[in-house]
């Protein structure tokens, strides 16, 4: 259940940014989470109400942009989508790859009032 740590990390960022903008609370929070980031969405939704309680996020709408995994093969430069970290290159079957997208775990934007 590291999702609670993640949710509390989100609350920390939202609190800081809201204070910086001299706003009162957040109406909408936009998150970017990669498919390979190791986040279980069900767990995140489950811990969310407890994490945001008494914070600027308490009544905020949470919008998650899920980013699919994309990798580039180190051996043949093929760019391909990956669903698992252990997926190998579809062209040359190499396991050596760089993950270009899919590990994101980011607060993208906040709509504050």
């Amino acid at each position: 259940m590291h999702e609670l740590s993640v949710a509390l990390g989100i609350v920390k960022i939202a609190e800081e940014e809201t204070a910086k903008a001299q706003a009162k609370y957040v109406e909408l929070i936009e998150l970017e989470i990669g498919a390979l980031a190791g986040i279980d969405f069900e767990s995140l939704h489950f811990v969310w109400p407890a994490a945001v309680k008494d914070s600027v996020l308490e009544n905020a709408i949470k919008k998650i942009n899920l980013l699919e995994g994309i990798a580039k093969c180190v051996d043949c430069d093929t760019i391909f989508t990956i669903n698992h970290i252990y997926d190998s290159c579809p062209k040359c079957k190499s396991n050596f790859k760089g993950i270009i997208q899919g590990k994101e775990l980011r607060v993208k934007a906040l709509e504050v009032v």
Partner: peptide
């Protein structure tokens, strides 16, 4: 008077860790 404002945060959630 609802002064809505959009903040582009672009911050990693595990940034603190």
């Amino acid at each position: 008077q609802h002064q809505r404002k959009v903040i582009d945060v672009e911050k990693d959630i595990l940034h603190h860790n």
